[in-house]
Design a protein around this nucleic acid. Sequence first.
DNA 1: CATGAATGAGAATTCATTCAT
DNA 2: TATGAATGAATTCTCATTCAT
Lengths: 197, 197, 197, 197
Amino acid sequence: MTNVVQSKSTDRKVEILDAALTLFVKKGFHRTSIQDIADAAGITKGGLYHYLKSKEEILFSLHERFISEGFEKLKLIEEESLLPEEKLVKLLEAHLEIIHDYKDAITIFYKEYNNLSPENYKIVLKKRDDYEDIFVNALEEGRINGVFNIENSRITSFFILGASNFMYHWYNPNGEKPLDELARIYLNMIKHGILNE
Amino acid sequence: MTNVVQSKSTDRKVEILDAALTLFVKKGFHRTSIQDIADAAGITKGGLYHYLKSKEEILFSLHERFISEGFEKLKLIEEESLLPEEKLVKLLEAHLEIIHDYKDAITIFYKEYNNLSPENYKIVLKKRDDYEDIFVNALEEGRINGVFNIENSRITSFFILGASNFMYHWYNPNGEKPLDELARIYLNMIKHGILNE
Amino acid sequence: MTNVVQSKSTDRKVEILDAALTLFVKKGFHRTSIQDIADAAGITKGGLYHYLKSKEEILFSLHERFISEGFEKLKLIEEESLLPEEKLVKLLEAHLEIIHDYKDAITIFYKEYNNLSPENYKIVLKKRDDYEDIFVNALEEGRINGVFNIENSRITSFFILGASNFMYHWYNPNGEKPLDELARIYLNMIKHGILNE
Amino acid sequence: MTNVVQSKSTDRKVEILDAALTLFVKKGFHRTSIQDIADAAGITKGGLYHYLKSKEEILFSLHERFISEGFEKLKLIEEESLLPEEKLVKLLEAHLEIIHDYKDAITIFYKEYNNLSPENYKIVLKKRDDYEDIFVNALEEGRINGVFNIENSRITSFFILGASNFMYHWYNPNGEKPLDELARIYLNMIKHGILNE
DNA sequence: CATGAATGAGAATTCATTCAT
DNA sequence: TATGAATGAATTCTCATTCAT
């Protein structure tokens, strides 16, 4: 899946990014200094610049890392030949798993993306749109088939993603509800709503 | 509804806060300098400090303004004697209205609240919890009555609020869908889900 | 001794000066703001400027108040016709009394006089010199008479004043030793030294 | 005596401290800006912060430098086995020498120590007390032996140190009286007083 | 007399980034 | 690769003083 052999440099870079992510989550992008990151990564400020050429690049790399991996995951599901309902379920399960795995990265994504350079901002937003489009397309397919009783696939997509994304504000991986249990509850509400009929 | 007569200072402070809000939304809290705010408000840097004693107080005031007004609105509905379903509908309509009216404030609330001082952070989080509790209580009432087919009122509340709050990421007040139309669509999904049964 | 009838303004000014003195002792001249002084005196910042035209004038007035009164006291003793030893004793007793009464003013005098404007600096230093000269003259008279076994009246004067002035660093008016007891001890050391002979 | 080999950084730091000391004596702590110090030391403001992390640390370092060296000097004398009178004489000669060598540092010590942070304030005051205790102990030893005709060693210590310390207000190293001459005069007054008997 | 608003200059400090070694 | 020194621009905040009302 991932490269087993990585150069020392790559390791070092990953360490720096991990350290940065932790700090960004705790203190925010601007309140975290390059010095802080260097300290946390066990490197000097000057040394850090051998791996990453600016603070913005750190932020961008963090975005990239999470959004690319997430997109790849969904893409694989999209390409499977599944019924709309099954596809939506699998997409959503994957999405919740991504939220679980990349809680920190998602947190800073929603808070700090406007600190990206205009060029990187565009790249990231494009990927986010592609990500969302996978949901929109799955919903649209089901809407046309008559499986989903929805008016507008995009609005529905935002509805579902919104409900899911909000989880990063409150979801505690060590809390009482395991993720698959939550996924079941969420799916149920999405499919049938909350009203007893 | 609002005071018609306000002292000059109150006006000035409101001007400063409005200017700050606009800038915070556009550039984020840290990338907006006091100088930027003062310029936008047509006042000198020193003058600004006559009305607000720190940059953090500006952020806090913006939070306060929106979260207190929002809470009052919901509180009034909570105190009406309504059936659970009716109450939830009214609460949600009010909530979407608040999102509509305070889109900018909510944007910076979710992005920048961790720039508040510890004391103000506590105050704001307390109010946010009170706000959410109104939804949780309404859902719990319906759950006990058997009107709502839900397992857990808090998770359901987060589900609904999450879906709604995410609107501030994409909702355009001048877009094709008017707010009441969106409210109808959202309510429908919350009540009945998306599956054709 | 002092005016029994004073205008309201004069009272107000005295209040301001007293408030300022207390604050200067506690926090130093620069760390005390005009706002602090105004607050302590129960007046507004703008109001304060009706009584004193600058922060420096406050400092100068405090110096004046203490150094003029002190000088007058010594002057009266100087003009009495006394034997050198008696005169020195009376001068020193008066000096210690002044230190007792104006501990705070003396503290800020030695710490903050270099914050005076050049003109006021000159005035204050002139008065300090006049004050010291009274001691030098008394010593010189005794030296010529052969009452005092000293080489240089100025150095001796500094020796005596130094020993006395240092008291403001440690003298506690509510401590175990009353002032007259201290005066006796000091005079004894000045007259006979510390060696058993 | 002192390290012959010092790192470049140590040199730079010493340069900054020396520049600061000169300026503090001339203009006082608060009227000297970091910019002033940086300019005088031939470094940029930002560069200065590479060596010292705050203005307060500059002040503290200046205090430390002088008070630690002074204390070491006295400590060595205290540990010699000398008769009380001889010990007092040597202590006082050393003390006057310290005043001669560190006139500037002592000046700002007495004027500006209340600008230290509470923690550093404590440290400095502790050292000052230790310094004074050396004199108190020497006097107490002589008082018990009957060599000194004094009532209270602490008051006597303050008397002597006060007389000596005051020298920094008027002593001019290039004046007519060399230091050892002054030491002789002072010692004479301390030992025998000023009265012809 | 008194006030509150406003000013403008200056202060300490932070920090991303560069670069000689 | 790695470092520590250095830079320079930006930033928040303070404050003595003025002045219209």
